[in-house]
Design a protein around this nucleic acid. Structure first.
Lengths: 159, 159
DNA sequence: GATGAAAACTTTATAAG
DNA sequence: CTTATAAAGTTTTCATC
C-alpha cells in the first residue's frame, strides 16, 4: 500500500513557510505566497493548518532585553538534596513561575537543573538569588555563570 | 530642573502593552487598547513608538520543536585553547552560523562559551558535534548536558 | 490624551477552472 | 493547485475636541 500524505506531515513548502514566519511573523500571506511560489489561497490554507496542528504554537513580539531594563543574563546550574518525584515537580513549578527565569530545563549529568535568568544588574541578581531562588528548601548547590555577550538566541529551532 | 519624560522612557502603560505583546502578538490594537485602558489611536501610537525605538525588536512565530523534528535540546559548555580576540570572534561567528545552535553566550567562569543546540535525536547530535562543532580548530574541551524536560522558555524577559 | 471617520491593506471565505 | 472576487476585520492616517 502506498503511503498517503498524512495530515500531520510537513512538506518542503510548509518548511519554507515556517522558515519565513519563524523570522518575521508580520509578513502577509501574499508576501509568503510569493516567496514560496504559491498563490495566496493555498498558502493561507497551509498556514492555517500549521496553526491548527500546533506546528505553529503562537505569535509573539520579541523585546529588546537592554531596552526593557533586563540587560544581564545569568545561567544557573542547580542541584537538589532529594530527588523524589514530588520535590522535582514542586521545584519545577517554582522555577517556571519566577518572572526572572526565562529558561528552565531538567537535565542529565552533573546538575539537576539548568536555568537562565534575565535581570537588571548584579544587585538585582543577588536579590533574586537569595530572596527568591534559594529560599526554596532543598537546594544543595547552585552555580552561577554570567553571560558576557549574547551571540545568538533563536526563539524556535531551525526548520 | 524637573526631569521631563524622555523619548526613550517607558511608562506603566507601555509596560502593560509589552506584557501583552510578549505573549500574543496577534492581539489587535483595539483589544490591547481595551486591556490597558486607552482608546485605539494612542495605543497604536505607543506600539509604533516602541517598534521605532527598538524596544519591540520584531515579531515571530513560535514553532513547536517536537512538531518540526527537533525534540532534543542539548546544552554544551565549551573551552577554547587560546583566547586571543581573533580566535574568539571567529569562533563566535562560527557558532552563530550553525543552524542547530539556538542559543550561544560568551561567559565568565569555568567555560568560555555556553551554547544550546536543538537536534532530532542522539545520532543527529553526534553528527552535529563531531562533524560541525568540533571540526573548528582550537576547542580544548566541550561538555554536553542533555535536557530531559523543558520547564520554561520565554523568548523575551519579563517586563 | 479621546473620538470619529476614512483609506489602505489583510485576512478569511467562496466559487469556478 | 490556480485565478478571481468579496465580505469582514485591521492598520494606518487624519481632523477635531
Amino acid at each position: 500500500m502506498a503511503r498517503s500524505k498524512s495530515a500531520y506531515e510537513i512538506d518542503d513548502i510548509d518548511r519554507k513557510i515556517l522558515r519565513l514566519l519563524r523570522e518575521d511573523a508580520h509578513l502577509t500571506t501574499q508576501e509568503i505566497a510569493d516567496k514560496v511560489g504559491l498563490s495566496q489561497t493555498p498558502c493561507w490554507s497551509r498556514i492555517k493548518r500549521l496553526e491548527d496542528q500546533g506546528v505553529i504554537a503562537g505569535y509573539v513580539a520579541l523585546l529588546n532585553p537592554e531596552r526593557i531594563g533586563k540587560p544581564m543574563s545569568v545561567i544557573i546550574e542547580i542541584n537538589l538534596d532529594m530527588h523524589d518525584d514530588e520535590k522535582i515537580e514542586n521545584f519545577s513549578r517554582h522555577l517556571a513561575q519566577l518572572p526572572e527565569v526565562t529558561d528552565a530545563y531538567l537535565t542529565t549529568g552533573e546538575y539537576d537543573y539548568v536555568i537562565m535568568a534575565a535581570v537588571e544588574d548584579t544587585e538585582d541578581y543577588e536579590q533574586f538569588l537569595r530572596k527568591r531562588l534559594l529560599k526554596f528548601p532543598g537546594i544543595r548547590h547552585a552555580k552561577s555563570t554570567f553571560c558576557l555577550r549574547r551571540l545568538k538566541r533563536d526563539p524556535s529551532p531551525s526548520v
